[in-house]
Computed example of a mutant assay.
Amino acid sequence: MYNKQPIGFIDSGVGGLTVVKEALKQLPNENILYVGDTARCPYGPRPAEQVIDYTWEMTRYLLARDIKMLVIACNTATAVALEEIKAALSIPVVGVILPGTRAALKTTKNNKIGIIGTVGTINSGSYEAALKQKAPQTTLASLACPKFVPIVESNEYYSSVAKKIVAETLQPLKHKQLDTLILGCTHYPLLRPIIQNVMGHSVTLIDSGAETVGEVSMLLDYFSIANAPQTAEQKICEFYTTGSANMFEKIADSWLNLTELSVTHIDLGGNIHAS
């Protein structure tokens, strides 16, 4: 029995596109709806209660579109809102933290793992708790990188400014003898080449968002809700942003390489209008 309902993805901005990119590759038959709350990005510095409220607003918007699964493609939102939303909904809800920790533990050889993320994600201790629960012997080094998300959201992630900020920010991790680094924010894979260059090629970078798609795939099979093979014309892939549709489209276009992007500006509090 095939299920045509879309999978919903939510993020504080464009970062979740790194998860969608992997979904387009691994799950080519699935219909996708994406909401990026660009107008209120970044979520990292915000109080947890506010992040929970915003995450619920995006969730309700997609529930009204009859999604069959929700992917919280934002580490900050996963850290503070996943359990509450999971408990309240009857559809599967997937976050990005646990898949990232599992991949890191599978990858590390010396049990020295670094985690970079927003202030909210790092302060929540979610990655550390998950890693220590599974592997208490692991040595962890966490670092908040508050300047990374604004670089990506302003489409500056290829710039010399980005290189300078990443190099300066990651200095505290350089001498920790890490062999694995979790990119604990879905915006960070857009900075991946710079991060890799700074950390060196002996450090394996874990894209928590990309790892999440493997879990989505497994759940589609487990609940028998995968879609049938479909042509490109049949496929639905729609993007909604609370910020500038033009800026979102530029970043999505360069990152996803889709021929025709459907990007619509929305106001989560009320009316929707195309941009």
Rank of each mutant, 00 (worst) to 15 (best):
M69W: 09
L82G: 10
H187F: 10
M1A: 05
L181W: 09
C74L: 03
H265G: 02
S202F: 06
I7E: 02
P146W: 13
L261Y: 13
Q177N: 14
R60C: 08
D221M: 06
K235L: 14
Y127L: 08
A88L: 00
I236Q: 13
I67T: 05
N155Y: 12
V203E: 02
Q230I: 02
K21L: 07
T121L: 03
D207W: 14
L183N: 08
G15P: 10
K163S: 02
P193H: 05
A232S: 13
A73D: 11
E83Q: 15
Q133E: 15
N123L: 03
P136G: 06
P47N: 03
L220K: 08
L268T: 01
P99W: 12
L140V: 09
L105S: 14
I195R: 10
E211G: 07
C185A: 09
S124P: 04
Q133T: 13
A104V: 06
L105A: 12
L183Q: 08
V93R: 00
P92Q: 12
V213I: 15
L173H: 08
H265S: 12
D66P: 00
L183K: 11
A144K: 04
Y188P: 01
K109C: 05
L178C: 08
T264L: 05
P172N: 09
I194N: 07
K86S: 00
A64F: 07
N271E: 02
I97G: 05
A73H: 01
E156L: 15
I115H: 09
M247C: 00
T169R: 15
L70Y: 03
A232K: 13
K164L: 12
I272T: 13
T18I: 01
H187R: 08
G243M: 14
L178K: 11
L140C: 15
Q234V: 07
L220T: 03
T264Y: 03
T186P: 15
L17K: 04
T169K: 09
I67E: 09
I52V: 15
H175C: 03
D37N: 05
T186L: 09
T108G: 01
M199W: 08
N75D: 05
Q196E: 15
N111K: 12
N75C: 05
G184Q: 01
P136K: 15
S275F: 13
I116A: 03
A135P: 03
L191E: 05
K250Q: 14
G16H: 00
L140M: 08
G36F: 03
L181M: 01
A73K: 04
N111F: 10
Q50I: 05
I116Y: 01
I115K: 06
E260C: 05
M199A: 03
T138S: 12
Q137D: 06
N227F: 01
